[in-house]
Design a protein around this nucleic acid. Structure first.
Lengths: 232, 232
DNA sequence: TGCCGTGATCTGTGATCACAGTTAGAGTTG
DNA sequence: CAACTCTAACTGTGATCACAGATCACGGCA
């Protein structure tokens, strides 16, 4: 095998199946809260929108059902699960435990590049939220970017994957709400907690990083619960 | 709606799709370590064995791929992922953090019924392991029963689900090894740790429960790592 | 006017077919 | 006898069809 040296640099192009792309699309809709709890999803309709047959959609949906990010009711209908207040509290507790742990690990294991991407993500979100009329969908996206910059800094792929699955469940509840209520963003709590987290991680203070993330998650959750819009 | 009173007792019969049954079968094979890392799995062959078409198998496999309990290589082959020592260490760290947390929560929130099922599971596994020639597959199953009796006592469905996904990944490595090496079971470490965990949970001592689970997980992991059979 | 049966239309599930890409092994060549 | 080539069988992916069950709106009966 004699190849031109330049070919050594090419990385094998990742083949993405239609199923994976459909999964990515649907997962994004869920995390960003554009699919509301209780909303139904038709395989055929989704396939039409995506311009493919229902097969790739079936695969994507069956993955999301496995993650409990979607559910198929006994009546054969796929929908975003309705979450009771009790379930939401459970989810919030688990998120605080796991995402807090990840933040603490990040404070212990972060390297320079992590600090850069965390700082950049924090700055981007603060800039957006301080605009006179922030773009809410964009703010949701930037919030996600910041959090995952933190979690990536823990250097534990498995942990990140678990947290991604948690966000898939929490997204419809949390981000749907945020889209509808700019107030929470304007209040600026998240911005403050994010700054605390960034400083703690930079300082290598695991406990403070954990507490910052916990406060951020708990703040959003309390806000949702206080509005009382969840199922019985 | 006037119905005979006796009809009030009937519970809606759960419909289980073939896909779900296929998933359960394959997941069991993985958790119990009957599918070894690197082993390939053909959709059509599996479908033949299960006596169905490949469609239900496809759904089951795509779920397991989403969980990273299986992977499909760039060459279009489904197999149990090979785990490097580094990945296994990461998995072990995450398991200790999350399963330890669950055990601690169990110590704080357990009720009487939890204590009964934990005690029963512990007793069953000790009995099996103290036999002159323990049935290893059965011991693997009883070990799983004990651990999940503990985790269920945390009363957090989401946490249990996350741990189940972790076991799906760890099963092939840990339990394949245990099947091949009775030594570890004979050594009796697990039995001792299980007793510690049970006592800690009964006493409501979260820290001790966490440490017991951590010791159990770490003990098995160290054993595996010392044998050096993992991929580079 | 209120209720119930009924059928058209939709749902997800499962099977089957088609296809491009891979693998393995037999056959051939040096 | 080793290495190469080519082909036949097999891989997962995607599309299409078939089907049982659920939904909902329309129409007829009380």
């Amino acid at each position: 095998m004699n190849l031109p040296a330049s070919l050594n640099l090419v990385e094998p192009l990742e083949r993405q199946t239609l199923g994976e792309r459909a999964y990515a699309k649907l997962a994004d809709l869920l995390i960003s809260g554009r699919l509301a709890p209780g909303e139904r999803l038709s395989l055929r309709a989704a396939a039409d929108v995506l311009g493919v047959s229902i097969m790739p959609v079936r695969e994507a949906v069956s993955r999301l059902v496995a993650d409990k990010a979607l559910e198929v009711t006994p009546n054969r209908a796929v929908r975003v699960p309705l979450m009771s207040a009790a379930q939401f509290r459970d989810l919030t507790k688990v998120r605080i435990a796991i995402e807090g742990h990840a933040a603490a690990q990040a404070a212990l294991h972060r390297d320079k590049r992590d600090l850069v991407s965390i700082a950049r993500a924090e700055q981007a979100m603060r800039a957006e939220s301080e605009l006179p009329t922030p773009d809410l969908p964009r703010a949701v996206e930037l919030n996600k970017t910041f959090h995952f910059a933190v979690y990536e800094a823990a250097h534990s792929p498995i942990l990140v994957e678990i947290i991604r699955a948690l966000w898939l469940k929490a997204g419809p509840v949390i981000n749907l709400d945020l889209r509808a209520n700019p107030d929470r963003l304007a209040k600026g709590d998240a911005i403050k907690f994010h700054a605390d987290v960034r400083k703690a991680i930079a300082a290598g203070d695991g406990v403070a990083a954990l507490e910052g993330i916990a406060a951020d998650i708990r703040g959003a959750a309390d806000f949702i619960l206080s509005r009382g819009g969840l199922a019985g």
